[in-house]
Computed example of a mutant assay.
Amino acid sequence: MKPKSSTGGLVYSTDLGRICPACRHPVAACQCASAKPKAVTDGIVRVSRETKGRAGKGVTLVKGLALDEPALVTLAKQLKTACGSGGTVKDGVIEVQGDHCERVMALLQAQGHKVKRAGG
Rank of each mutant, 00 (worst) to 15 (best):
H25A: 11
C32V: 13
I19M: 13
T81F: 12
M105V: 03
V59M: 10
K116P: 00
K90N: 13
V59A: 15
S34M: 09
C30H: 05
L108E: 00
L67R: 13
T14G: 14
E50N: 13
T51W: 08
C32N: 15
G64W: 05
G84P: 08
L61M: 15
Q78V: 13
R117L: 12
G120T: 06
V59F: 15
T41M: 04
V104E: 02
A28Q: 14
S48T: 08
K114H: 14
I94Q: 03
K57S: 10
C83P: 03
V45N: 01
G98R: 05
K52Q: 07
T51K: 15
G120L: 12
P3I: 09
L108Y: 01
G17L: 00
Y12Q: 04
A110I: 03
A106V: 02
A82D: 11
C32Q: 15
T81R: 09
S5C: 09
T41R: 07
Y12V: 14
D68I: 01
I44A: 07
V45P: 00
A22C: 05
H100D: 03
C30Y: 04
G86W: 08
T81D: 11
A106N: 14
P3R: 09
K57H: 10
H25I: 00
R46Q: 07
S6A: 12
M105Y: 01
K77R: 15
V89N: 05
R117S: 12
T60H: 02
V11C: 09
V11S: 15
H100L: 07
P37G: 08
V62F: 03
C20V: 02
G9L: 02
V89G: 09
R49Y: 07
E50A: 15
T60A: 03
G86A: 05
V96K: 00
V89P: 07
K2S: 08
A33F: 07
I94C: 04
T88S: 12
L16K: 05
G86Y: 07
V104P: 04
S13G: 10
D15V: 12
A35H: 10
H113E: 10
H100Y: 11
R46S: 07
R24F: 05
A22L: 11
Q109L: 06
K4Y: 11
V27G: 00
L107R: 12
V27R: 08
C20I: 01
A71G: 04
T41I: 08
V96S: 01
H100Q: 06
H113S: 03
G56S: 05
A22T: 13
K116A: 13
K2T: 10
G98P: 03
A76I: 03
V104M: 02
K116F: 09
T7F: 15
G17M: 00
I44W: 05
K38L: 10
L65A: 05
R24G: 01
A118P: 01
V45I: 13
A29V: 04
V115P: 02
G119Q: 06
P26Y: 05
V62P: 01
L61R: 12
Q31P: 00
